[in-house]
């Protein structure tokens, strides 16, 4: 059922492209929300966005503000679209790229909006430049400005941060988050990066092989993945059965952050100290990675250089890997059942 505040509702949408099948997909995007679709490369994220924009014909039902738009033409949907490589028109200047929508539809308060967008995204010095001479970050801001200037109710962003220098990412993510409130629109942002999703999302859908594995509030999805695949994709490391901790009756799986594991030659004052054998050590600039065997399971830990040097850990050594209860994240029972099957 469509919620009162849902802007977009997708119902059993499917699309076949060669051997790839997208869907069936069902999800809702609330009004004024930041919705992140998280999925690996090749999971059909771009195809999904193009379907929502009306660029790919789909089966099923797409509702926008309660009205069916499944067969509505892209130019009549009023959705903004920013591609991963930004797709700025090479034949036009930055200014003409941004004003492009004004040639085809009446833009409310066009001048004020243009000034505001240019100011918000800091692109005033670029306006008369050719788009071919812009950096990745500049192109991204121009592409966003072009989409915002068309006053969409819904903005579709396809991996918008992948071509951006990591040093500018946080600043751009802050701008992206502000777009929702500043311009009163919802955003659907697809990415393979769960850190982006953690920062930006109000709601998250986890997508894999053309299907949505889980959808819900960002907090819920990020902390309670409903499948092993979702858990792994969301960055959960050391997914292990409760039996490793000596809890025989519990069938659940737990996950422990690699940074929260304390190695010691003696049992420590922590709730769980597991006997382990060091199998591999990977030396890195700031931390060292230690891969250890606990029974028939593998434990992966990250150690600060200082601790590593103090312990003088060597491959083949018997140690204790100590974990505090507070650092254990229990996964839902469904995940354990999935692994058992």
């Amino acid at each position: 059922m469509r919620g009162e505040s849902d802007l977009l509702s997708v119902r059993d949408v499917t699309l076949h492209k060669g051997a790839f099948t997208l869907g069936p997909l069902s999800f809702d995007v609330p009004e004024h929300s930041y919705f992140v679709i998280l999925g690996k490369t090749g999971s059909g994220k771009t195809m999904l966005l193009e379907s929502l924009a009306g660029l790919q014909p789909v089966r099923g039902q797409v509702l926008f503000g309660g009205k069916e738009i499944t067969w509505t033409l892209p130019e009549e949907r009023g959705f903004g679209f920013v591609y991963q490589d930004f797709a700025l028109f090479p034949n036009l200047s930055v200014r003409d790229n941004i004003r492009f929508a004004g040639r085809f539809r009446a833009i409310e308060d066009a001048e004020a909006l243009f000034e505001d967008v240019v100011d918000f995204l800091g692109i005033a010095p670029l306006l008369d430049r050719r788009v071919t001479h812009l950096s990745g970050g500049e192109k991204q801001r121009v592409a966003l400005a072009r989409a915002i200037y068309s006053r969409p109710k819904l903005l579709l962003l396809d991996e918008p941060l992948s071509a951006i220098d990591p040093t500018f990412r946080t600043a751009i993510m802050i701008s992206l988050k502000q777009i929702v409130t500043r311009y009163g629109m919802s955003i659907i942002h697809v990415t393979h990066n769960f850190r982006e999703a953690t920062f930006l999302a109000d709601r998250i859908a986890v997508m894999m092989d053309g299907k949505i594995l889980q959808t819900g509030e960002a907090e819920e999805v990020l902390h309670r993945p409903n499948s092993l695949a979702a858990a792994k994709f969301l960055g959960f490391k050391n997914i292990l059965p409760a039996s490793v901790l000596g809890i025989a009756k519990d069938r659940r799986l737990f996950s422990v952050n690699p940074n929260a594991i304390l190695f010691s030659r003696h049992r420590q004052d922590r709730e769980h100290c597991l006997e382990c054998t060091v199998e591999e050590i990977v030396i890195q600039a700031d931390i060292n990675k230690v891969i250890a065997r606990v029974g028939d399971r593998t434990l992966y830990a990250k150690l600060p250089k200082t601790m590593f040097d103090k312990l003088k850990i060597a491959v083949g050594e018997q140690l204790y890997a100590c974990i505090a209860d507070a650092d254990i994240m229990w996964l839902p029972e469904a995940v354990a059942l999935e692994e058992a099957s």
Partner: peptide, 20 residues
């Protein structure tokens, strides 16, 4: 993708052809 973006910005297929 230029053509796709033009469509989402309100251009019909014919106007997309002539403008992009």
């Amino acid at each position: 993708k230029y053509e796709n973006v033009a469509r989402t910005l309100g251009a019909s297929p014919m106007r997309t052809f002539f403008s992009v």
